[in-house]
Design a protein around this nucleic acid. Structure first.
Length: 558
RNA sequence: UGGGGAGUCGCCAAGUGGUAAGGCAACGGGUUUUGAUCCCGUCAUUCGUAGGUUCGAUCCCUACCUCCUCAGCCA
């Protein structure tokens, strides 16, 4: 399950153009990228795009890609998240260079560089309250004004910073700020805070530190220490690039990586904000981070999306700088394409209607391939008996125009079996059809009837041989394409109440011992996967619907 | 009203002074014991708008319009 479904040459994009130029000019002999998540949540489809980009670039250009945790805000971070992230990256099919890196590995170096900035008069300790600082910062259209602390002497700053580190001051009492320009039109350059005091237990450094460096200050230095050549992030960091460069230009460090930004991914009918995904989990709108409706990597995995399918999706959406909101159809197309190539076919019934074969005597079973084009996937015996289940949707007493399925007096092909005619529909007191009496043409096993053509093929199961299974039918999580378009509105009001439907259905006995995370195509219904958590091989069978098959018939009806 | 970005087919996305790639979707047809797959075909005289430069502009210039983004001691 590891090779990509198609391997066309990678599409051109602006980052590749930059790398091509850097390599051609000799600026770099090889590239080094990095994927730098904060371990404060599970990875989602947007991260998957970034992972495919960073690791993919490294692979294509024979470079390296690091996995680095941006663990500079201990209050939000956990070991659970860090572990889950590593598993997700590996599952997606990527291997990072060397050991996992942590920004916290650089805390000592970061502290030393901060001292250097202070010594150069480029950083100062400020005891303005957060409220005051906001006031001094000015607005988008008005310049800020200098803090009274800005002219503190180097010696005083050195002393204060050391005491900040030493734990002499309360959380929030003061910060270390870069001394840049309070009147800059770029807000990030108005003396940004680069260290704050926070007594929080850090997942790796424990209680060693009570001051923590900020993202803007940490990220560029981490990149430089790791020899990153191309530091790729999303567009909202574009305004931070001058600060990224300012820090590296003002400390003694030999390496100066360059930051490039691409637009973040938006997917129709879902959300890709960690904060909002966390809210869905906390408020139990979903069962957890790996709920199959979640756009998290673990959720998509549990849903049955394959790593190769997600990689193909990333390739199809490309990398650019324009805002985009991608159709779910692109994801579903990529997933179907991958599954089409590998998923064994079996029959399953979601909504059974009983069929009694009135001329069963002498009928035979037949062997069928698990995949029409992949004989190596093997065969199994398709049971046939006098009592069958067919999909209730496959019978219509008064069929619409164009109907190719079963109807009174009509005949269809039972998949891998006989041609069958419906002779009678048995109804209950309410007029509801509860059973069909049908007869088969004994001469049609494995061959077409003479003198007439049978238009439809439907799937079925022998009642006596079928196994009960819990089938979870998933639909989009939200009812609108862009649930968080309205920034102030509550995106939860667009939650799709019917995003999960659990039914008790029936499956072929051939899947009885399937391990968790086994993919199948239920013929004519869709791709399904055995649930990672709840399915038990040989025991309780639980299938998640990954995606339906393309269906030009219901589309035509609509 | 300040700064930084972006506007090419329904959704993505190449291209870049020489006359609009590709994918997805859609549509038409063929094959088919999955209304699936597969195969064949169709799908932007036009690149936000208006001017200008040029033999020639999506690409260069000017103005305008629209959208995104920035005022955390988050990342």
């Amino acid at each position: 399950m590891s090779s990509a479904p198609t391997s066309t040459s990678p599409a051109s994009n602006f980052i590749r153009t930059i790398i091509d130029n850097d390599l051609a000019s000799g600026k770099h002999r090889a590239i080094q990228t990095r994927f730098p998540p904060e371990p404060n949540g599970y990875l989602h489809v947007g991260h998957a795009k970034s992972i495919c980009l960073n690791f993919g670039l490294a692979a294509d250009y024979h470079g390296l890609c690091n996995l680095r945790f941006d663990d500079t805000n201990p209050e939000k971070e956990s070991q659970e998240y860090a572990l889950a992230i590593q598993e997700d990256v590996r599952w997606l099919g990527f291997e990072w260079s060397g050991e996992v890196r942590w920004a916290s590995d650089y805390f000592d170096a970061l502290y030393a560089f901060a001292v250097e900035l202070i010594q150069k008069g480029l950083a100062y300790v400020d005891d303005l309250s957060p409220e005051k600082m906001r006031e001094y910062r000015g607005t988008l259209t008005q310049a800020g004004k200098n803090s009274p602390s800005r002219e503190r002497t180097v010696a005083a700053n050195l002393d204060l910073f050391a005491r900040m580190k030493g734990g002499e001051f309360a959380d929030g009492a003061m910060v270390l700020r870069a001394k840049i320009d309070m009147s800059s039109s770029n807000m990030n350059l108005r003396d940004p805070a680069i260290y704050r005091i926070r007594r929080a237990h850090h997942i790796r450094t424990g209680d060693k530190w009570c001051i923590y460096p900020m993202y803007d200050y940490t990220h560029c230095i981490s990149d430089a220490l790791e020899g990153i050549t191309h530091s790729i992030c999303t567009l909202e960091f574009e305004d931070h690039r001058p600060l990224y460069d300012w820090v590296l230009d003002n400390i003694t460090i030999p390496c100066h990586p360059r930051q490039y930004e691409f637009s973040r991914l938006e997917l129709h009918y879902t959300i890709t904000s960690k904060r909002k995904l966390l809210q869905l989990v906390n408020e139990q709108k979903v069962t957890g981070w790996d709920d199959p409706r979640m756009p998290t990597i673990s959720g998509m995995r549990r849903r049955g999306y394959t790593a190769a399918g997600i990689r193909e999706f990333a390739k199809r959406v490309g990398v650019a700088k324009s805002e985009n909101s991608v159709d779910m159809a692109i994801m579903e197309g990529a997933i179907r394409e991958d599954l089409e190539l590998r998923a064994p076919r079996v029959m399953a019934i979601i909504n059974p209607l009983k069929v009694t074969i009135t001329n069963f005597d002498g009928a035979l079973t037949r062997e069928a391939d698990f995949h029409p084009n992949l004989p190596e996937l093997g065969k199994r015996e398709v049971a046939f008996a006098s009592e069958l289940f067919i999909e209730a949707d496959d019978f219509a007493e008064v069929p619409p125009a164009g109907w190719k399925r079963l109807t009174l007096g009509g005949e269809i092909r039972l998949r891998h079996s006989y041609v069958m005619r419906c002779d009678e529909a048995v109804k209950d007191a309410d007029g509801k059809i509860i059973e069909l009496k049908c007869s088969i043409d004994h001469a049609t096993l494995g061959k077409n009837p003479e003198g007439r053509k049978v238009k439809g093929v439907i799937h079925f199961l022998s009642c006596a041989h079928a196994l009960p299974a819990e089938i979870r039918l998933y639909d989009r999580l939200f009812t609108v394409a862009q649930p968080d378009a309205d920034k102030d509105g509550d995106f939860c009001k667009y939650l799709n109440a019917d995003s999960l439907q659990v039914v008790q259905g029936w499956v072929e006995a051939a899947v009885k011992d399937a391990a968790p995370e086994t993919h199948y195509q239920f013929e004519r219904l869709g791709y399904f996967v055995t649930d990672r958590r709840d399915h038990q091989a040989g025991g309780k069978l639980v299938f998640n619907r990954t995606v339906t098959l393309k269906d030009s018939w219901t589309k035509e009806q609509a």
